[in-house]
Design a protein around this nucleic acid. Structure first.
Lengths: 237, 237
DNA sequence: CCATGTGAAAGCGTTCACAGCG
DNA sequence: CGCTGTGAACGCTTTCACATGG
């Protein structure tokens, strides 16, 4: 429905809006394609790609159809071509400068994580209020006092930020980030944050993930007890 | 894809199967209720709860209706009662023992994270192959060699695991966890893992989160460039 | 009178079956 | 002939409007 590439849109209809669910899977396909390339595969079928990405084949074909027709019927997709197309769609053919706020447990892990730089996301500056952390080095970034945030974000052309602070200060930090002109934020603090329109905020809550896991564990253990005919008082545990 | 709820589970008293989307939001309501309790609120409306959880009011009411009727018409929900009910539904009225595999950057952050224990998830043992890490302490857990995994998991009654290893070894680690009888796993390694039926596997991929963020950043910057003469006010939320 | 609880409608996302094309 | 690309069916989620009951 949103397709029909009009006349004149020959080379690069790049930023077309994709379904959110598809966007979430594209990085998986990308990784699978990189792996397939390492395995010297020149072409790959939707079936094979699906297996490597952990989804099913019709899903892969539907998702890829949103990008255009980059496959060859009867053959499959050219691994390298498809990789480039997904890379382009995701905007990964350029580099991003990222700020990291909070140099505690999680902040340190994020600052040292190599997976970010490998994909073009460079943590170029870290911030913390703790004087004993300021001045230290975190991965490739210096740890600055929070008071310098706005200044440094602008000077270093930072467009994205990771919030890894305690929940209490997360909203204050976010407000400063917005003031500095940042438009994309990944929040690891377990709290709801408010952003003005035009800023994209995404949340990762590790404790929530565990609680979801706990629900299914709980559900299953309840079923196991029932299956054994032990409605209640199912011995110990 | 992981563990279909499955039919046949009719009216069971406590562990009734909830829609997956609802399960993901219950932890948010829980946190909002704890906060509201701290603010001395005895009752709370769906409107107020929605605001604190970052969702909308009809969504809250629909979600809560799956748990039963714990509200009072014309008044709202009793904060403490609702908190208990959600707690019970999520299976958080008991404690879980958790294994942490991988004591690198991310593993250390997870091992020290206090949010887990606060919610009843206790990391009681950590594992790593690196001899320099084995024997050290990580939060409340000792770091053991990976070879002792099966033995210790059984001895410590561990039912859940966090995989924070390099992608290369994640499948091997998972196989051992399954062998040891673990049924719920949260995987932080950026790779697709295969589990037998009956084991619930959930994945958190930090690089993927950043790539999704990058897509929307890219999309927006493309739009800004296009916004030469087209007055198209932001219609987002 | 007010906010909950809920059918019904609308909106998305996934799955399917097969037409289309190399 | 094989695998892609896609319209259409299906199922899950969200939204809405309002009947319900304290």
């Amino acid at each position: 429905m949103p397709v029909a590439p009009g006349p004149g849109a020959a080379a690069a209809p790049v930023p077309r809006s994709l379904p959110e669910a598809t966007v979430k899977r594209l990085p998986l396909y990308l990784q699978a394609l990189v792996d397939a390339n390492d395995d010297r595969m020149v072409t790959i079928s939707s079936e094979e790609l699906a297996g490597r990405a952990g989804v099913n084949a019709p899903q892969v074909r539907k998702d890829l159809s949103y990008l255009g027709s980059y496959g060859t019927r009867g053959v499959g997709y050219n691994t390298e071509l498809l990789r480039q197309q997904i890379n382009r769609q995701l905007g990964l053919n350029r580099e991003y400068n990222v700020a990291l706020i909070g140099a505690g447990n999680l902040g340190q892990a994020l600052g040292h994580y190599r997976g970010f730089a490998q994909r073009g996301f460079h943590v170029v500056a870290a911030f913390d209020t703790d004087p004993s952390k300021v001045g230290t080095r975190l991965g490739n970034a210096d740890v600055h006092p929070l008071s310098e945030l706005v200044e440094i974000v602008r000077k270093e052309h930072i467009t994205m930020a990771l919030i890894a602070t305690p929940a209490m200060v997360a909203q204050d930090v976010l407000d400063r980030l917005v003031e500095a002109g940042i438009t994309s934020v990944l929040n690891f603090a377990p709290t709801v944050l408010n952003v003005p329109a035009g800023v994209y905020l995404r949340k990762v809550d590790l404790a929530v993930e565990l609680q979801i896991l706990g629900y299914y564990e709980h559900l299953r253990s309840g079923r196991r007890a029932e299956a054994a005919g032990l409605a209640h008082t199912a011995g110990g545990r």
